[in-house]
């Protein structure tokens, strides 16, 4: 790609391997993500999409390969992964809000403890972001009082409160009731418009078509096709991609 000459990738994956019980889930993956990229990772179930995403911030320990984030190899044992994770927001399928904390405490605990922000500054920031996702009045509630869609929007805000450089989304709408999918996708769309770098594992083809600037198709532990969404959905090249798209579209 000519892009290499112009700028360095924000996040670069080199020869990433992940084995479970000697089975290669990820089989030597190379990928580059640039600032402002919105990349959708799609593929059949069991293809290793989630594992790939979780390797990016080492929630899953890679068996081999390198992950270069902002110029640092975060797979190196000498790197302090906790420092780098602060710059990589993550949103989970199951929201994973902390049930024993209010929404506001969920949002502010990490900025206060890890970034040394004052309580007021952290709360101001959290409140501003809550307003943006339409939940400005829910700060005092406990997560159990909220719907799935609301919880997931707050989980996104929780990650954003750390002011990350990249956001990782692990099937953020898969656990939601259908009528709540839209509200979460809208928040993600707004985020993309603000030029947040996003890597999204998803089954939402509509979102991929509309919001992503790149779609990557993962199957058998490798990216076998990668293109702009227009080209990807209109003219898939690989047979397996064609088969997959014929099933989901």
């Amino acid at each position: 790609m000519t892009r290499d000459n112009m700028e360095k990738p924000l996040l670069e994956v080199q020869g990433l391997i992940k084995k479970f019980d000697r089975r290669n889930i990820l089989d030597g993956i190379d990928a580059k993500f640039y600032k402002g990229d919105v990349v959708c990772v799609i593929g059949p179930s069991g293809s290793g999409k989630s594992t790939f995403l979780r390797c990016l911030n080492r929630l899953e320990e890679p068996t081999g390969g390198h992950i270069i984030f902002e110029g640092t190899d975060i797979c190196d044992i000498n790197t302090d992964i906790d420092k780098h994770r602060q710059k990589m927001g993550m949103v989970f399928q199951q929201f994973n809000l902390f049930p024993h904390m209010t929404v506001m405490d969920n949002l502010t605990c990490a900025p206060i403890k890890l970034q040394g922000k004052s309580k007021e500054a952290a709360q101001d920031k959290a409140h501003e972001l809550l307003e943006k996702v339409g939940l400005g009045n829910r700060g005092k509630d406990f997560p159990a009082r909220l719907s799935g869609g609301q919880q997931q929007r707050i989980a996104i805000v929780r990650a954003l409160c750390m002011e990350p450089d990249v956001m990782l989304f692990d099937e953020p709408t898969s656990a939601l009731d259908p009528e709540m999918v839209g509200e979460v996708l809208n928040v993600m769309k707004d985020l993309a418009e603000q030029k947040m770098t996003m890597i999204v594992v998803t089954h939402e083809m509509g979102f991929a078509k509309e919001v992503a600037n790149r779609v990557m198709f993962l199957d058998g532990g490798k990216f076998i096709e990668e293109n702009t969404p227009e080209e990807f959905f209109a003219h898939p090249q690989n047979e397996r991609t064609k088969l997959f798209l014929s099933k989901v579209l």
Binding site: N96, F98, R158, M162
Partner: peptide, 9 residues
């Protein structure tokens, strides 16, 4: 995982 992903040790 949510705790670790935020950067908590």
């Amino acid at each position: 995982e949510a705790g670790r992903s935020l950067g908590f040790s």
